[in-house]
Each structure stands twice: as structure tokens, then as C-alpha cells.
Design a protein around this nucleic acid. Structure first.
Lengths: 224, 224
DNA sequence: TCCTTTTTGTTGTTATAACAACATACAAAC
DNA sequence: GTTTGTATGTTGTTATAACAACAAAAAGGA
């Protein structure tokens, strides 16, 4: 089987092909496809696999006791999920992992992650280093989500989120990876209230939009 | 100088004293005390140091453009902060780090963190491993904060937070590490509205409280 | 193409939180 | 003890979002 595609993932960055081969042999793997909206992991399950998105796209969501859904993150090809839980054996998953579209997922069994296979195996160590980079990056993503939801008004949340998107795209014209419902879940607000606020903001001349494509007007730039 | 105290920190777990000595020599350190409410790090600064709380207690907060403060985390003795930014050179700090009380902080220069000092120096590698554990743990903390603020009502947020605290303490009687204002900032709600909701919940027989000590009644247990 | 389904936007009503201003309680300093 | 300051609780008003129900638009399939 050809594992060339893994060379392009962040998890295996800087690890040569033969190193990847030996790591995979050491850990054990699985490859699986999921239809749109199917559950990849359920909240509550113990997790022994890191997931890597090969194609498609997934998201991490939390459903509380009242049925509110909130979206924590969105993960595209080449990226990794559930690594937190794989690093904390016994910690039950607090979130659901759901496919946004038909997606192919590669699973890496991590039971042996913290056992060094041979003393100071350099590939294993690079893998740990890569995992550190990934969790640090996720940390930033979670922090950002917190910042975007710290405003008490919908408008404030939208301005925080959209102006960050503009910054990241390096342009005031950009597309976002969410539809309205998902954006509402990400910002922890009601969808129809979100639509309503967006159209008010458009009336106020702050931005124009069409579906998930936005253009921020100069007025917004005062906000950072 | 005696660095024995570092043996008890998560960051240096499983590293023998002589290993710690050589790591410190490799990295460079600093030790400093901060008065109550003083800023340890300012948002916007580039960070080259991991901070370790030796005594006292600090918190991480975010202040948005409208002056809303939200608290992301609270860090006590033996624990580490700013490690995310130390791992991402160039990423400017998005938060303020503030001392809750007079605190002594140990700083570790991390410019050389990702350079292996000597090929496969085992202490260095254990340090990276420990850092991974720490960031993974922080990830869970951030996720939890998101869950506690995902409810749209103050009561829902309080129930989520308080029942988690009870679970963690293994008892329905427990103290929380926040005063009212900090709890309000952690849950992203108005302080007076929080006080109001708490006294309503007390009237409704869900809990009793006095200052930061809470007793949850059986009714609450339906919530998980 | 038409029909069906999904997504997005609109409106009105109601619940809830924010905000402001003040009262009370508690703690610290003198 | 008294004074000062800080933390917490209370009340009333206002702004805002949630919610529900529906309309319109877009997308996907037959």
C-alpha cells in the first residue's frame, strides 16, 4: 500500500518515507470513508486513534443537554483531529466529529505513542514534535473562537470573526467555510437572528455579502 | 542557585536534577515577582519565554475592542503559561497575563526549544513530551470553557460550569477559584446579572452558596 | 424542465440579559 | 471602633437575542 499522501500532512512533516513506513508498522492504521453528515466519532467514546482527513472536510461539534449545537473547529484535507484525546488515554471524547461532505479518513492507532519504540528513534521523536506543533495550533484556534464569541452582541461577534477572516485572507473580499447555520453555531447565536443582523449590517453599509462570500467596507476597519 | 522546585513542575516531570540543570544552562532563565493585578505579559508582545508560576496565581484574559474582558484560564503554582506562543515564534500574544495575587514567576527562554542541543539529548526530548502533555491539557481547558459558554442563558452556563466543578471535586460541596466578577468574565456574562441569576437559582432550590463556596442540590444532578 | 428539499431571509412576539444606579455586606487600614 | 474601599446583591428600565412561523431563493434530483 502506498502511503505517499502522508508525507504532505502536518503530522508527518519532516519524516522521510521509510520513517513513515516504520512508524505506521509500529502503530497500526486504518482507512475509511464517511458519507456526508455521518458521525466519525461520538461524544463519550474512548479514543485510541488520531484521525487524518485525506479528502473531504469534517467539523468538531458539541451538543449540550438542551440540544444546542456549537461548532468548535473545522478540519480540512491533510489535517488531524482527535489528537488531544489520543494523547490522554482514558479521557472520554467531549465532542462529536461529523463529516461535512463525503470524506476519506486515515486512522492511526496511538496506544504506543508514548512508548519509544527503540531508544531515541528519531522518527518517533519528530512525530511527537509535530504533534506539539499541531496541538499548539489548535490551541490558537480554540482561543480565537473564544475571542469571537466574547462580545455580547451578534454584531460584535460577526465583526470580530469577519475582520479576522479578512486579515487572514489578506483581503476584504473572502469566502468563509461555513453556511449560515454553521456560522451561527460557531458564534453561538441563533441562525435567524444571525441572518437578520447580517442584513442590518448590510443596510448600515458595513459590508456586502452573498451566500458565504463577504466584502467588508472601510467602516469595519476601524475595528482593528 | 537551587532549582529543586522545578522538579515538582509538570514541565520538568520525569527529568532528573542534572538534566534540569543542563536544560536551564542551554536555554537561559529569569526569576521575577509581580504584585497583585500587575501585568506579566501584554497582548501584542512577541513572546520568547515560557512562564512557570512558582507561587501565587495568575489568569489569562482577553480584552476586546469594546472593553469586554473575558477570562480564558487560571494558572496556579507549578503550572505553565505562554507556552503556546513560545512554541510559535512570531505569533503575537492575543491575551493579557495578569497576577491575581503577589506571584513569583520563573521564565524560561525558548528560542532554542526546537533545536536539539546534542543529537537525541534525552532530557530535551522529555521536555518536548511534557510540553505536549501540557498543551493537550490546555486544549481540554479551552474546550471546557467553550462548553460552559455554549448555553444561551446564564442559568445554563452556571449549571454547566458548577456541575462540572462538582464532578471534578467529587462532591456537591466545593469552592470555585473565581470571585463574582471573574466568574462573570469566565462565563461571558454581566456580573450583576450573574448575581441575580444565582439568587434566583437559590430561591428555586437548585443550590446554596456563600461567597465562592457552593452546594449543589440533588435537582441539579438531572443535568448530567 | 418541474418538483422537492435545503438554505437563507423576514417579521412579530416574547424571554432574557445588559446596563445603570443603588443598597448592603464584608474586609482592610487607620 | 471608625473609616474607607471593595465585593456582592437588588431593582427597574432598556436593548437585544431567542424563538416561532413563514416567505423567498437556491440547489439538487427526477
Amino acid at each position: 500500500m502506498d502511503f505517499q499522501f502522508l508525507s504532505d500532512t502536518i503530522l508527518f512533516r519532516e519524516i522521510p518515507s521509510d520513517g513513515i513506513q516504520s512508524l505506521l508498522a509500529c502503530f497500526g492504521t486504518e482507512r475509511k470513508t464517511f458519507p456526508k453528515n455521518s458521525m466519525i466519532f461520538h461524544a463519550g467514546s474512548p479514543i485510541h486513534f488520531i484521525g487524518i482527513v485525506l479528502s473531504g472536510s469534517i467539523h468538531i461539534e458539541h451538543n449540550d443537554l438542551w440540544g444546542n449545537t456549537s461548532i468548535l473547529d473545522r478540519i480540512g484535507p491533510g489535517n488531524v483531529f482527535a489528537e488531544i484525546y489520543a494523547c490522554m488515554p482514558g479521557e472520554p471524547l467531549m465532542v462529536d466529529v461529523v463529516a461535512d461532505e463525503p470524506s476519506e479518513i486515515f486512522f492511526l492507532n496511538t496506544s504506543r505513542l508514548f512508548q519509544v519504540c527503540t531508544p531515541s528513534c528519531p522518527h518517533h521523536q519528530q512525530l511527537i514534535r509535530n504533534l506539539l506543533s499541531i496541538t499548539v495550533q489548535k490551541n490558537l484556534n480554540l482561543s480565537r473562537r473564544i475571542f469571537h464569541t466574547s462580545s455580547k452582541t451578534i454584531r460584535g461577534r460577526l465583526l470580530s470573526y469577519l475582520s479576522f477572516q479578512a486579515l487572514q485572507h489578506g483581503s476584504s473580499t473572502f469566502s468563509i467555510p461555513f453556511d449560515r447555520q454553521q456560522l451561527a453555531d460557531y458564534l453561538s447565536v441563533d441562525r435567524s437572528a444571525l441572518s437578520h443582523e447580517l442584513s442590518k449590517m448590510q443596510k448600515d453599509g458595513l459590508l456586502t455579502y452573498r451566500k458565504n462570500k463577504f466584502i467588508l467596507k472601510d467602516k469595519v476597519h476601524r475595528f482593528h
